[in-house]
Amino acid sequence: MNFEYALRLGDNSLILGQRLAEWLGHSPALEEDIASANISLDLIGQARLWLTLAGRLEGRGRDEDALAYLREEREFRNCTLVELPNGDFAFTVVRRVLFDAYHGLLLERLALSGDADLAAIAAKSKKEVDYHRRHSADWVIRLGDGTEESHRRAQAALDALWNYTHEFFVPDAVDPGAAELHAPWLADVRSILAEATLQVPADGKFLSTGRQGVHSEHLGYLLAEMQVLHRAHPGAKW
């Protein structure tokens, strides 16, 4: 485990957690307000553990808050998928299922690591993410196999999001084994989408590059909001 890899994990959880919390009070049902909060809370908790670990690996004295609040867009290492605006409820749960399925596989692999700190965080997070996947898969199936409108919205979300998933599986120096997760991920996602009566989109050539720090235009606004108070009071304790 190195600093860059820990940042990827931490940033994925942090940014998706931040997005999900936006649903609080605006969900289609009170149960979903609570579920969004719960999942967001899990993700923020994971982000804290990963960013703390990243700071330790870096060895420059940066803690979770220094990493969350005092980096700029180009220094964030989350995949682009998680930073996209929430869109409608279909977009939110389709995005989630694509990510949750990947996230679970990734954590499963990390939980087997010989690095005890890493394995412990991964194992704890994996349990949470299993629930996240179940929740998002249930909703994607309900929407896909629900009404005409919900089917249309879910398919549109899937079409818009599909090409953002390619980034998960591109091997690079930080994650040379990234491609290994593609086959099990695709099998899992295909089975969910089949039950949802949704069509798996054709793979396009678009490739997002958030993991390299080259993001969509949306991340800057998310960070501006997230960091504004912390940055307005340099050095303050909260």
Binding site: A29, G146, T147, E149
Partner: peptide, 13 residues
Amino acid sequence: EEGQWVRDAAVAY
């Protein structure tokens, strides 16, 4: 109101 289509979908499913 914006959640109506979601609740309808859950019922239909």
